[in-house]
Amino acid sequence: MGLESVGLKMNNLLLISYLDLKESIRSKWFLVYSLVFGGMIALFFIAGITESQVMGFSGLSRLLLMYIQITIVILPIFILITTVRSISGDRDSHILEYMLSFPISLKQYYWGKLIGRFITVYIPVIFAMILAIVYGVIKGAEVPWSIFFLYTGLLFALSSAFLGIAFFISSFVKSSEVALGIAFFVWIFLLAFIDIALISLMMQERFSEELIITIAMANPMEIFRVAAISLFDPELTVMGPVAYYILDSVSQANFVLLSIAYPVVLGIIFAFLGYRIFAKKDLV
């Protein structure tokens, strides 16, 4: 294959991403999505979160921690409901039938869409965080760079994981409604399996601690939750027993690496499975 044809393939992939990006940015969900995350930061400042000092950490670190704790809960569902329909929706409405009557390979279409969507979901959450830093600096606060970079990585990983899951769902469901239903279920399920459910399991003492920790660590949402507080002094944060146990048994550096690598890999695996299904099934 010549260089030219590789270039052409890249071009088609980027073309799909670019058009998907443009389409998303114009859509109402994107507006709501950006407003939610930008608005959250604005609200934190208005509420004076950076000024108050609670539990030993203050200023921007505290604001970023609050931001990421809320984001961990709402970002997955945002990503799931907005992207779970990207392919199944195009199929339902026969857009796929027309667009794929042009010489675009299924690879280019699928991965192009995925990259486009990734940019759309990732940019607003990062942008909101940068907004916070900029405003904080103007206000004369100290910038907690290590936390900022950790969270940038965590949000990247979080977005990848759920985007992969969403594309996976999108590839096999027959209709968008079902896709939405499954998305909600996945979210609730993962949410339920963070500390609360695990503590009760632990208390029953019927399961070994290792098993419970493994379950906890398999859940990207739990990993994020623990990673988000891992840079803070464990004595000072309210983290719950599972988080405490994890941080106690794994070194911090390793855990941070794991918390970013694992969800990214998980996302890629799901996205890849989604592609396999997409390519194997009837297209329209």
Binding site: E23, R26, S93, H94, I95, E97, Y98, M99
Partner: peptide, 8 residues
């Protein structure tokens, strides 16, 4: 196609 799809 039979029906023009609702391309956005």
């Amino acid at each position: 196609p039979q029906l023009p799809p609702p391309i956005k």
